[in-house]
Structure formats: structure tokens, C-alpha cells
Computed example of a mutant assay.
Amino acid sequence: MKEYEVYSSLKVPKNSKIIVRLDGRNFHQLARDLDLIKPYDDNFYNIFSCVCEDLFKEFSPIFVYAFSDEISMLFDNVPFNGRIEKIDSVMASFASSSFAINYNTKFKKPPAFDSRVIPISDDDILEYFKWRQDESWRNCVNSHGICYLKSKYSNNVSNDKINGMNLSDIHELLFKNGINLNDIDTYKKRGIAVYRKNKKVVGFNKKENKEQISYRSYVFTDWNLEKFSKDFFRRIGVLK
């Protein structure tokens, strides 16, 4: 019966880099069920950062980027021998379990993520993550915009109004009403990332009878991301 598993042999190319992107399934409804604070719920994002850290520690990507209910993981060492069915199913289910465990509440429906595999070259890594970070900014502007409008109008009127506005229109509307998006938390504008950093460790070399400096890597969650650039990805070791 093995021949009925029609996609089980589908693999990503050997020695390639991939991005695995996870998206929360129907998290708009989940936000309503959990009565999350709008436009951004700090507790939700603290838990979401824990999910990113769990994924990083379990599967060893070289970089994780997240905003809203989306997580992108960059791999240079492809797990599960590149088997796409395995990558998609295990990582999506792991993220769902991590979210449920870290949230530690009773859900009306079990939280779930979907997953997709994106083969990528070094030349396209920056472009991909800039694309997603731009989407984080659009999400930020729209979230604050619709939240403000719903404080003044009905849901239907608010939705109609925001559908006819571009980002600069929403930004201007918010600014005129005392909401300066430049002043909000950086993670709300640019997302968060998880990657490895080195820290200096000062020890003592008994044999040479002197202090000795070494460096150890640790998992770092960056809540104050700069705008993505080649320089940023070179500094953290993602690009050469």
C-alpha cells in the first residue's frame, strides 16, 4: 500500500536553503474567543515569542521572523532529509502544541497552524524578509486604523472607510487624532526575530594563571528589530 502515499517521496533539493512559513489558522476567530486587546495584545505576543523560541530550539533554523500570526524560519540544514510532507506536518503540529502549552488556557477550538516550504537562494533571502517586514508594517497601520475607526463608527462603516484608504491616509488620520505610530513599540511595526548571538565570557586559565576571554552563543529574541538590510543579516551570520 506504500504506493498510495503519492507525495511521500517529494523532497526539497539537496544542499539548498529553505524557508518554512507557518500561519495561524483562523486566528481572527481565536482572537475573539480569547478576547484579545486590540490592536495589539502584549500577552499574546509574549506567548508567540515563546513559540518562536521553542521552534528555534527544536529544529535549529538559523533565523526566525514573526509578526501577527505568521512565523518564517530560515534553514541552511534542511531537516527530515528534505521530506516536504514531514517538514510541513511536524512543524505545524509542533507550533500548534507549543502555542497551546504556552498559552495555558482552555480554547473553544484547538489552535492550529498551516505550513509551506519555500526554497530560496542567498540572493533572495533579504528580499523575502524585507517583503514580510513590509507586510508587518502594513498590518500595524491597518490594525491601528481599524481599531480607531471602530471606536468612532459601527463595524460596517469602519470597514467601508478603511477599504477606501491607503497606508498614508490611515497614518495621517491617526496622527491628526493623537496617535503617532512612530511612538509605538518597535515589535508592533517590524515584528520580532530569534537568532543566535555571542556573549563574552571571562574565565580564568589556571595553567597560564591569567584571565581568558571566550565567546559563547545563546538564543536571542530581538524585540527591537532594525529595518532588514544586508548589513543586518551579515552581522548575525545569515549572509556572508
Rank of each mutant, 00 (worst) to 15 (best):
I146L: 12
K230V: 08
Y7N: 09
F44W: 05
L167A: 06
I19E: 03
E70Y: 02
N209I: 02
D54M: 02
C52Q: 01
D76N: 15
V51F: 03
D54Q: 02
I37W: 06
Y128W: 11
N163M: 11
K199V: 10
L167R: 13
S9G: 06
D123E: 15
C147A: 13
Y7Q: 09
D185G: 03
E5P: 12
D169R: 09
Y187K: 01
K240V: 13
L174Q: 00
I120R: 03
P119D: 02
F75Y: 14
L36M: 11
N177A: 04
N156R: 08
N15G: 14
K106R: 07
Y45A: 02
I118F: 14
D122I: 08
D183R: 10
R116Y: 08
F67E: 00
N224S: 11
K200S: 08
L36D: 06
L30M: 15
L126G: 06
V201D: 13
D160S: 12
D33H: 01
D122H: 10
D33V: 01
Y103A: 12
L149Q: 10
T221E: 00
D134V: 09
V202F: 05
K227F: 14
D114E: 13
D41Y: 05
K188V: 02
D222Y: 02
S72G: 00
N102R: 06
D134E: 10
T186Q: 07
Q212R: 12
L149F: 06
K227M: 08
R83E: 12
D69T: 01
S9D: 15
S68V: 00
D122F: 11
S115V: 09
A112R: 12
F107E: 10
N166K: 13
H144C: 08
K240L: 10
I18V: 15
L126C: 05
H28M: 08
I192G: 00
F220Q: 03
L225K: 00
S154L: 13
N156P: 04
K14Y: 10
K199W: 09
S97I: 06
E127D: 08
K189N: 10
N159E: 13
N180D: 15
D183G: 10
S158F: 05
T105R: 07
R25Q: 13
N177S: 14
S115A: 15
I170P: 09
Y65I: 01
D42V: 13
M1C: 11
R132C: 00
E85T: 09
K188F: 13
K38Q: 15
N182G: 11
F107K: 06
N139T: 04
K161S: 04
R32Q: 13
Y4C: 07
L173Q: 08
R83C: 05
P110W: 03
S214V: 11
T186R: 00
F107Y: 08
K161L: 15
L36Y: 05
